[in-house]
Design a protein around this nucleic acid. Sequence first.
DNA 1: CTGAAAGCGCTTACAG
DNA 2: CTGAAAGCGCTTACAG
Lengths: 338, 338
Amino acid sequence: MTSIKDVASRAGVSVATVSRVLNDHPSVRQDTRDRVLAAVAELGYRPNALARSLRTDQTRTLGLVISDVLNPFFTELARSVEDEARALGYSVIIGNADEQPDLQDHHVRTLLDRRIDGLLVSPAGGGSPLMLEAAQAGVPMVFVDRWIQGVDVPVVRTDGREAVRDLVAHLYRLGHRRLAIITGPAATTTGSERVEAFRDAIREHGLTLPPEHIGQGDFQADSGRRATAHFLDMPDPRDRPDSIFAADNLMALGAMDEIRARGLKVPDDIALAAFDDIPWFVHTDPPITAIAQPTGELGRAAVRALIDRVEGRPAPSVTVSARLVVRRSCGESEGKPR
Amino acid sequence: MTSIKDVASRAGVSVATVSRVLNDHPSVRQDTRDRVLAAVAELGYRPNALARSLRTDQTRTLGLVISDVLNPFFTELARSVEDEARALGYSVIIGNADEQPDLQDHHVRTLLDRRIDGLLVSPAGGGSPLMLEAAQAGVPMVFVDRWIQGVDVPVVRTDGREAVRDLVAHLYRLGHRRLAIITGPAATTTGSERVEAFRDAIREHGLTLPPEHIGQGDFQADSGRRATAHFLDMPDPRDRPDSIFAADNLMALGAMDEIRARGLKVPDDIALAAFDDIPWFVHTDPPITAIAQPTGELGRAAVRALIDRVEGRPAPSVTVSARLVVRRSCGESEGKPR
DNA sequence: CTGAAAGCGCTTACAG
DNA sequence: CTGAAAGCGCTTACAG
């Protein structure tokens, strides 16, 4: 690879001068600047980012650890994160935890070793000593979507409580009384919050959420399938739920797989709703009623917060809200989003 | 950040020794090794990957530039690439071109500046002087899925010709005679190949593919919507296609949006099929007939080829084949995959 | 078995 | 306005 030395000798100047023109330092005479630029062009020289970062102690790079790349919600989040970061002059390196705390820590470690300027994470599990340590060591960090208790960093998330209440009211209105949920890992905040909101809302209608109606999932499709099978296998039909709320879109996919495999129909045999709205939900049979998050907004706000921290400014936590999008999977004809 | 010097002084050895134990160099006495390791643990020391890479001239990192993160095909590809790379001791940095050649080049440049050991790309556009130059300069590189003519690097892709022929035969058998395609950019190989295969197959049935039945798309959803609107707006109903083949899943999504917006029904009013199979196609209304690629296999083979190049071994191009998965979107009841 | 030293490719305070 | 030199955090050939 051609280095700054090659450019310097070709332009007949010192490497210091080359460095200055590359960094737009004002104190360089126009004609020497021109000579340097010409040499750069002729040699096709590109500065070595590693060397530069080593020297300046900044990489202008953000790390993003997402829970699962195969989940359209996170993929859209990643997209908005990258867009906003690029607009602000940063690049981002993505790590996919695949919902595994170990893999998540692997990525956090790798990212830290690369000396990224800041870390954005949507934690896959519960506590992570590694991340706690990093936060305490002063690594600029912010949580998106999910967060870890006891780690004191800003959180950018959506509060789905209201939307979940709306969903439960919607189900109740349509006559459903035996509501069930397929939840994410209790160790994740979104996992526990969504069940709690669901349970609270159910109570408001004088109903209960029995333990058998809480299917333990892990936010991935297979677990949605298994939990649904469990519900449908309950011996006494009167115990079986008449509606399922999947706490994310992938588990809803799994639920649909299982329901279809048994020749059952949504919503006639069982109602289905999901947290996270995705474009495909419009075209499924039937269209799925879902809770939509302002995903792009979330990603952009998270990046801004992180860059604030990186550049030494304070950054507040931010909470946006979700909304229920009624379609046909709980019964009744298609309504308009409220 | 704590550096190798801190570890050295704490352990009472030189930095050279610390470096040796970190790199598992055999010639270190067990007890000094222990002392060093203890110091590393006490300080929570993590080597600076930038410094190491600068010195060793290798990053053990691969760059992957994909055409569109929002496309489930690429997201699955990225997932398998990352998995295989990690298994082989490499990490990967992903860049999302969003189907824009400029953005693609931006990422290639950034990746090159970071001195990644090798580059995996699924080119968004036609020729890229930047990539041609990099290839000529000896940067280990391989193309996945799509490739660029005239750039001499291994290509790992799937050949969809046979599957497209099967699809056309399937459509013909069901009585469709006015077949149309929504294609990707002609500058991309998958864009041009899929139309060609489609056209050739149509000819075999004594039919033709008139220019008005070729909708120009860009592999993203909106373009699928527009192309479909165009087809449906043709003044003379006898000119309107009776079936649409979308060259990727996102354009199929757009087509469904448009068809549904007009109150039309698949397959009764118009048949629909797509290149790339995704889990949602099982649950759409109706389930979509699609051409499935062995995506994971593609990603893994691409990584192996790239690492072969990186480590100085020759790497062959590899071509896998696709298969038609018949569902109900072209008419007729659900068949089994052939 | 271990250390001193050179050097990877940059940036930047210090002189001039 | 420009250059010589130090130094970022590592690795590794060379001595001992």
